[in-house]
Design a protein around this nucleic acid. Structure first.
Length: 138
DNA sequence: CTGTTGATTGTTTCA
DNA sequence: TGAAACAATCAACAG
């Protein structure tokens, strides 16, 4: 059965093939304050998985190995297992959105006035930044 | 020394 | 709507 590896997810496989070739030019960031994309549930899971993987394979240095293992494991997990990671990812996304808002706010303030009310605008942003911080519960 | 590569999937973003 | 790019990681290699 390999003739055609399926297909149902042709988009996925194809995309990756192209993207891999393009990643070479991703380091072009022009906006210093532009927030980066929030980690997906898979990345959240990866953070934990890497730790375990390092313990299980302290000799392994290839990041690709962990990625492959994580990917295989990820697909092996059920939605319920991914639930906590997904939930975390959702929080990250929410924070990211707030970040973008602040980012836009700063730009708006800067573009609008960067000499007079700069102090004032700063305060406003400051409040937004400290909005909620942390909640660690178990 | 600096920068890209490698590999995963998910989310983000533009047209 | 879909395709394209990028998110972390870290060691190693190339220029």
């Amino acid at each position: 059965m390999k003739g055609g590896e399926s297909k149902a997810e042709a988009t996925s496989t194809d995309q990756r093939l192209k993207t891999r070739g393009r990643k070479a030019g991703k380091k072009t960031k022009k906006d210093p304050n532009q927030p980066k994309r929030p980690p997906s549930a898979f990345f959240v899971f990866l953070e934990d998985f890497r730790k375990e993987f390092n313990l299980a394979n302290p000799n392994n240095k290839s990041v690709a190995t962990v990625g492959k293992a994580a990917g295989a494991r990820w697909k092996s997990m059920t939605d319920e297992d991914k639930a906590p990671y997904v939930a975390k990812a959702e929080s990250r996304k929410t924070e990211y959105i707030k970040n973008v808002q602040q980012y836009n706010l700063k730009l708006a303030s800067g573009t609008n006035r960067e000499e007079d009310d700069s102090d004032k605008s700063k305060s406003e942003v400051d409040e937004a930044v400290s909005e909620e911080e942390a909640e660690d519960d178990d």
